[in-house]
Design a protein around this nucleic acid. Structure first.
Length: 499
RNA sequence: GGGCCGUUAGCUCAGCUGGUAGAGCAGGGGACUCUUAAUCCCAAGGUCAUAGGUUCGAUCCCUAUACGGCCCA
């Protein structure tokens, strides 16, 4: 299509081409559509706070320079209202031809939605009550070539929202709030851990032996050493090596990677808090978990009473504690434990449609019954305790019952949010547990652990008694932001390649 | 891996038991010096996800594929 008056051969049905032509026209006129910098004197939120009491219709002589993205233009002919969004909020520019000059006004009114602009002028509040900058200068800082999503409905297509998060963040301010909350949660978490005397450390993400969890790792290759490496599935074994080295309290907010399926609760890479306390135990970790999560809720949300997906959740102390055996027994209507004869456990699994695999012992079967029958029913925070030793190869055996471990998982809204135990520090027992895992791996369990000889060597030097804790940070953010999917709390969730 | 649902203009959505598509916003032209989902006038914008099939004729029915969502394993 050709411009009807024939003066320019601009294809005005293609937004990208129209804007490219504008850029070319600017360059032809000697203007730079991509400036080098702009001296900003105020963020929008500062202006909103400072001038909250400014009455409607008042004009001040205070001058400010703001910069942001144009998100709305309302052209009135010889005046124009331009809404600019910076990182802290939206503010209106009240552009008038008499203040900007004819050329300046024309240029302002010609701005496109999405353009980055800087503006300098006096602070005022319009007669309709909108805080505004009345600019004597409006500068295009960076030209946008693509049209923004619809101004009222925003961007709702989930695929585009996740793939092009930058557009999602422009179009949907509430998305920005979720990630601001995520940042606050991490910030409070770090301050809390530091206040408890924990040292933040960094341990390898590239590991020669993947350990610390039962999961399938991503495999990679180091060219220089011509060796296979794994992206960590957990930092646990390295953090515990630090206890051998004499560290007293350490934690790592870690990205870990598991080569498994994706779901609304699983992303191949995810964030955990892992913490270890020498001379502590499971009980110390239970107290830490409860205090930390409640403190985060109070600090970030101002309350321990939250709502997740329409259902109230109380994070107020104390949280329920119950043993796995008691919970499974309740669900099955009969006593069930790791000491229940194997045929009876197999019959229970059959009754409750729990799929089983050959080689599973009573501990694994009880654990499967728990996950099938109980886990999803625990909506309020619950510490599930006394996990089977069979499925807890890094946890210390319970003194009263060596088939169990001093371990808990914290379940909230039917999901595992944290996992902790009194650490297994006996190198002889640890080796036998690793060997049991190796047997399972040889029998086809791809998630079973590998024997980590260096970790065993470290333990042989002597590891202090310790408590260890892992908290799923993404799931905690989901809980505290009322997000249904992990993808809503990850800035750039994993996606298949675009079609 | 299995099941169900979805994919129509840049965005948000319509589209009648099958006759090759509409709106709003955005974009283009014009009017307007207090608007804020501004308003008003005019014009434009589509390989209906992709590839096959059925049919005189397919956005619509069938099959496969891709991507996405939810549920299950």
């Amino acid at each position: 299509m050709i411009d009807p008056d024939g003066s320019d051969a601009i294809p005005f049905d293609d937004p990208l081409e129209v804007r490219r032509a504008k850029v070319e026209a600017m360059r032809a006129a000697g203007e730079q559509p991509y400036k080098v910098r702009y001296d900003v004197t105020a963020h929008v939120s500062d202006l909103v706070a400072t001038y909250s009491a400014l009455p409607a219709g008042e004009e001040t002589t205070d001058i400010a320079s703001v910069a942001g993205r144009v998100v709305a233009v309302r052209d009135q002919g010889r005046a124009a209202f331009i809404v600019v969004r910076d990182a802290t909020g939206d503010i209106q520019l009240f552009c008038r031809a008499d203040a900007l000059g004819d050329d300046g006004f024309q240029a302002s009114a010609a701005l496109d939605l999405g353009d980055w602009v800087g503006a300098r002028g006096s602070i005022m509040r319009t007669r309709r009550g909108e805080l505004s900058v009345a600019p004597t200068e409006v500068v295009l800082l960076s030209k946008s070539l693509r049209p923004l999503p619809e101004k009222y409905h925003g961007l709702s297509d989930t695929e585009t929202r996740y793939r092009q998060r930058y557009v999602d963040l422009i179009a949907n301010p509430e998305v920005r709030d979720v990630f601001l909350t995520r940042f606050k949660i991490l910030s409070v978490m770090r301050r809390f851990m530091e206040s408890r005397g924990y040292l933040e450390v960094e341990t390898p993400m590239l590991q020669p032996v993947p350990g610390g969890a039962t999961a399938k790792p991503f495999v990679t290759h180091h060219n220089a050493l011509d060796m296979q490496l794994y992206l960590r599935i957990a930092p646990e074994l390295y953090l515990k090596r630090l206890l051998v080295g004499g560290s007293d309290r350490v934690y790592e907010i870690n990205r870990s990677f598991r080569n498994e399926g994706m779901s609304p609760r699983h992303n191949p890479e995810f964030t955990m808090l892992e913490a270890y306390q020498a001379f502590g135990d499971m009980e110390a970790m239970r107290e830490l978990t409860e205090s930390l999560i409640a403190a985060i809720a109070v600090d970030v949300l101002g309350t321990t009473e939250i709502v997740y997906q329409g259902v109230p959740v109380s994070l107020a102390s104390p949280w329920r504690q119950a043993s796995m055996a008691d919970l499974v027994s309740e669900a099955c209507g009969r006593d069930v434990s790791v000491h229940t004869p194997l045929p009876e456990l197999l019959a229970l699994c059959d009754t409750h449609d729990v799929p089983i695999q050959p080689g599973w012992g009573p501990g694994k079967l009880v654990n499967e019954l728990f996950e099938k029958l109980v886990e999803h029913t625990l909506h309020q925070p619950t510490f599930v305790t006394l996990y089977p030793a069979e499925t807890s190869p890094l946890a210390r055996r319970n003194d009263a019952d060596p088939e169990l471990t001093d371990r808990f998982e914290l379940i909230v809204t039917g999901r595992e949010l944290a996992n902790a135990f009194s650490e297994l520090v006996d190198p002889v027992d640890q080796r036998s547990r690793f060997e049991a895992q190796a047997t399972a791996k040889a029998a086809g369990d791809e998630e079973a652990m590998c024997i980590d000889e260096d970790y065993l060597r470290a333990q042989e030097y002597g590891m202090p008694p310790a408590g260890g804790l892992g908290i799923g940070v993404d799931r905690l953010v989901m809980l505290l932001t009322d997000s249904a999917s992990i993808r809503d709390v990850l800035l750039f969730p994993h996606m298949r390649p675009e079609a």
